[in-house]
Amino acid sequence: MPDMSDTTAADDTAGKPHKAGLFDIRNIIGALMGIYGVILVLAGLLGEHEPEKTGGINANLWTGLALLVVGAFFATWARLKPIVVPENVEAPDDDPTRPAPQRKRPPVH
């Protein structure tokens, strides 16, 4: 999956390019997984273990750690290969079946 990345926008015409930052989906995934990871690790360390449910494994702790790794992976990936937004984005027609910001009137057949 990581190798499939062709996220850098090719059309980089004029002016200084700016990065997608917060809106880069990899940062959003990384943030959510990271927050979940922290909460689950804390729950695993401080909360009840409930070993009778999990068969003795501290499931919250291990899942939390795994999520932290995933979160860090996405954050690093986004940092190493940032998406550059082209200066002039041609606004295409809105797609009424595909939710997106409604900017123009939906097309009439």
Partner: peptide, 27 residues
């Protein structure tokens, strides 16, 4: 949060992502 930001189109970068035909194949 993403929905509200997308609606307000506060950033041209989110416009870029949501405007269609701009996402990489893995996404």
């Amino acid at each position: 949060g993403i929905g509200v930001m997308a609606r307000r189109s506060v950033s041209d970068s989110i416009d870029f992502f949501l405007s269609g035909r701009s996402l990489p194949a893995w996404v």
